[in-house]
Amino acid sequence: MTFRSGAALALGFLFAAGATQAEIPPFTAECPTGITVTWDAAGIVRVNGAQAEVRMYNPQYFEATAGGITFPISSEEDGSGLLVGYNPPGSAGGFCTIVSQGSAPAQAETTAGADGPDHFAVSVSGRLNVRSAPSTGATIVGKLPSGTVVENLGCRQAEGRSWCHISDGDASGWAAAEFLTEASGPVRSPRATPVTQGGSASHTVERVQFPRGSSGTEFTDSLDPQASHRYLLGARSGQFLYFRLAANGPGMTYVIYNPDGSVLLDETSADREYRGQLWQSGDHIVEVYNTANGRQSFNVIFGID
């Protein structure tokens, strides 16, 4: 499988774990049915590599939710007595096994990250295993195809080899450094398998990730005639979306959809940019069409404020 995208954040009391101030130390826990729960030094809770939704009650107790399963997480005020629960819907729950617990690796163990390249590209025949910890025995949380560009969160030595903590913006894990080469951002995974309808490809889909600390990004792409490509952007109600399509020929148009599938902006020609406030939270879709008779290249610019 490839890295899975995190669920859209809900309103109210649901926040990304990175926004909390919990005093529970980073950990990795193994739960029933092969589920791995991690909380890293950046304060992000992930379930099998995908970012979870978090309901914060106090610095010593919060609940992470992913795939319909709730994981209660608690500890004493000093960080001791860590407990990670497992509450699947419709059946009895239990507790997960704490595999590791503690602070982030010491700076002396870090060989990349702040002092290394900001991004890596996967260079491997087939797919690269991404694991929950820097160990060949750790749970595989994803498999990345060659060419995937990921963010470098830091590298360290373990088991006689160099491991790097990498992220595609939604999910993170550890990969052997010998299969990673220096690359330039922004983070962008290779295009997904075309979505098929009635036996033929109708469009391709790609999730847009912004470089860390940035509120926008841009790509250069191309489309076959009478084909379309969908860009997915996670955003919250009340934020402003900016989009511009710069085409190298006639016949390029785009449509913007709300998370519920309704149309935010009807089909619009490439010479008109969009800037407007969003009224739903979740994955918004910008679908670019090539209505011409020949393949065309184009540039897309995204911004969310």
Rank of each mutant, 00 (worst) to 15 (best):
R156L: 15
D168W: 06
F120Q: 05
L128E: 07
T204G: 10
R212K: 15
T193Q: 15
S167D: 05
D78L: 11
F95Y: 14
V124P: 00
E76N: 03
V141I: 15
T110M: 15
H119Y: 10
T196H: 08
S135W: 02
V150S: 07
G85C: 12
E159A: 15
R191M: 13
G173R: 00
W174S: 07
T70W: 01
A92W: 02
V99A: 07
L83V: 14
R161G: 03
A114Y: 07
R156T: 13
G116E: 10
S100D: 09
G90A: 11
L128A: 10
G160D: 08
P88S: 11
G198D: 14
L153R: 14
T181H: 00
S184R: 09
G173S: 04
G102L: 11
E109C: 00
C155F: 01
V84P: 05
G90P: 08
G198Y: 07
H119L: 05
C96Y: 07
K143W: 04
G85N: 12
V130C: 06
P88W: 02
F120I: 13
A108L: 11
I98V: 15
D115V: 15
G79E: 12
C155L: 03
P186T: 13
D78Y: 08
G198Q: 13
I166K: 03
S135V: 14
V122Y: 00
P145F: 00
P117F: 01
R127E: 11
R191F: 05
T148K: 04
S200N: 03
W174H: 06
L180M: 09
K143I: 07
C155M: 10
S125E: 12
E206K: 02
S132L: 05
R131V: 12
G169F: 08
A106D: 15
W163M: 06
W163P: 02
N152S: 08
Q107V: 13
